[in-house]
Write a protein that binds this DNA or RNA. Sequence first.
DNA 1: TAATAATATAACAATTATCTAATATTTTAG
DNA 2: CTAAAATATTAGATAATTGTTATATTATTA
Lengths: 106, 106
Amino acid sequence: MTPEFPQENLQAAANGLRAIAHPLRLAILCHLTEGPKNVGELLALTHVSQPNLSQHLAKLRMLGVLNSERRSQHIFYRLADNGFVRIVEALKTVYCKTPESEAGKS
Amino acid sequence: MTPEFPQENLQAAANGLRAIAHPLRLAILCHLTEGPKNVGELLALTHVSQPNLSQHLAKLRMLGVLNSERRSQHIFYRLADNGFVRIVEALKTVYCKTPESEAGKS
DNA sequence: TAATAATATAACAATTATCTAATATTTTAG
DNA sequence: CTAAAATATTAGATAATTGTTATATTATTA
């Protein structure tokens, strides 16, 4: 329907966006662009309550953004698709502008 | 806080993501990557009710994704930042994979 | 096997988002 | 100035999202 973005894929992409459209979940996504991390590590990085983190991880997993893998007592999360790194980078170009990067705008 | 993505910007980015995390709003965003369009044009492209489209446009405007400009009786919408084009492209790499593009995955 | 550490799930109140139907506003044409 | 076209706003019922507290599951260690 939309050029280069069929309706069916729009729905899928909107679900993925819904998954990361939250400050904590986006922070999780960012941290995982650096490589897989287990829940304890993410807990230390994010400073939220354990159940809260776990629920947000569950949502990211259910909406297809993250995969989890158990390694003995720890569960490691990782990006389900490397393309999410590009999405995070694109978000940075829009939302992390420095004064300089703003100087030469079109 | 998060590497390369301070907490304050995370909140801003999450708001932007919230804005586009809806199939219709994402479709609008896609259409506008091709250039500004007025409401009537978007109405024809999206096949939704006029008030519904208008409300979604209002949300995109309020959350800083779109700008609007009146030209006589028509109101034109455009992307508030060209970086959104990159976000849409990144989304396509994740959610519009062809069988071939899937062949050589890492 | 019992205790502990790591992680997940359930239940729930408060907030926010969604669509539709009705109405309002703004601009140009006559 | 009035009618019509383009777009926005309001109201409201329904559904989805969020964080917390409490509890459950799973895996190792003693």
